[in-house]
Design a protein around this nucleic acid. Structure first.
Lengths: 213, 213
DNA sequence: CATGAAATGAGAGTAGCTCTCAAAATAGGG
DNA sequence: CCCTATTTTGAGAGCTACTCTCATTTCATG
């Protein structure tokens, strides 16, 4: 019901067998909290849902909720995709055009996500579009993603990872993708997310269409 | 000591003379709160500064502080530049290249800001770079700015203001400028902000330098 | 099974923020 | 100058996210 399971397939070494009872319980608790949160938000909305209610339904104490997630927004937003996507990006052939690499990885990621838990992806997008606090946290986490992206861009371009040029490039990429996501949610998920992402990448690559850029 | 005075010069109609005692007091209170906040943060840091302390030093009640500013972060971040810049942007000749318009307006804005209260501009940038809560709120407000920007971009490009293309374009512009600001603060204000902004705009316009984009 | 380590729960405490209501300040007209 | 309507303010209660501490429970390991 969450994304953890999906995170396994592509590029993860071997760390599955030795998984003690403790670790398994921790994962279960994490999932329980997330599931309880999504359920309650579905019933009452985000703001009306308190940590106490979440704790109650997940059958843990409020303290435990905060031990697993630093903020309420993080319960909704946390996923494990970003590092994986980064790995995949950096694993692409160095002579591939940058935007092609991005496109490729984004397509794979979206396939994976819609195959695993499309419901969660939508809820998340919906909350990001509607609830200011969630949106803020989401933007913040995207800018963290942008920071990770710098390494990949730096490797491709030969520029230093902390140069302004690389930073701007990373940030505009991340911002563009976020905008695609927002658009998707705001229009009630009517469009195909893949198309939106493609169009966003086109704008980043070539500027606005039918314009002298 | 704040930015209000600066906002007067360029494109404001006539609304100065009829300014009752009530309005004047409100402005004074607003400034007092902001001044108190900046002072206290300078002495103790952001997190250690509570609304109560701010209220005390500004000689108002805590309630009043919240009446003037919705959040603590807003006390630090709120300014009145954005709408002005938007006006100026839309007032540029329609046949000017888009990026040139942006460059022009940004230069004017930066001149204005560094002429008026360079101290506040720096403190704000510094806090945005250091304090997560402030940064989050700042990003959020930049994305509001991005929303305003859409109108201008739509007028120039002929595309609908709510199209994905325009949104991506607006967001990446705003993100790039923010990155320039961050860079500036993180490097201890050693660089010239104008150069950084120019370089950011260059990346947005032409892609990464010496690269097949 | 005993011992050490880790996870949990309970509880108190802080601070940002909201809401309500009564008191004080101001505007405008007689 | 005063009276009244409106606005602004202050006081205070209340909610909730979040932090910290400490005792208790639960798992790991020899």
């Amino acid at each position: 019901m969450t994304s953890m399971t999906a995170a396994r397939s592509p590029l993860s070494p071997a760390d599955r067998p030795p998984l003690g009872l403790r670790e398994r319980k921790k994962i279960k608790t994490r999932e329980a909290i997330r599931a309880a949160t999504y359920a309650l938000i579905g019933e009452q909305g985000y703001d009306a849902t308190t940590i106490e209610q979440i704790a109650e339904r997940a059958e843990v104490s409020p303290s435990t909720v905060f031990r697993y997630f630093p903020t309420k927004e993080d319960i909704v937003l946390t996923d494990e995709y970003d590092p994986l996507m980064l790995e995949e990006l950096r694993a692409r052939p160095a002579d591939e055009a940058w935007m092609d690499s991005v496109r490729y990885v984004m397509h794979r990621a979206m396939d994976m996500m819609t195959r695993e838990d499309p419901e969660v992806v939508r809820t998340r997008a919906h909350l990001s579009a509607q609830v200011p606090a969630v949106r803020a946290r989401m933007i913040e986490s995207m800018s963290e993603t942008g920071r990770l992206l710098r390494r990949a861009i730096a490797e491709r371009s030969g520029l230093p990872a902390d140069s302004l040029e690389v930073r701007v490039s990373a940030m505009s990429l991340v911002g563009g993708l976020m905008e695609a996501n927002m658009c998707w949610a705001e229009n009630g998920f009517r469009d195909d997310l893949r198309d939106l992402v493609d169009r966003a990448l086109d704008v980043l690559e070539h500027g606005l269409p039918t314009e002298n850029r």
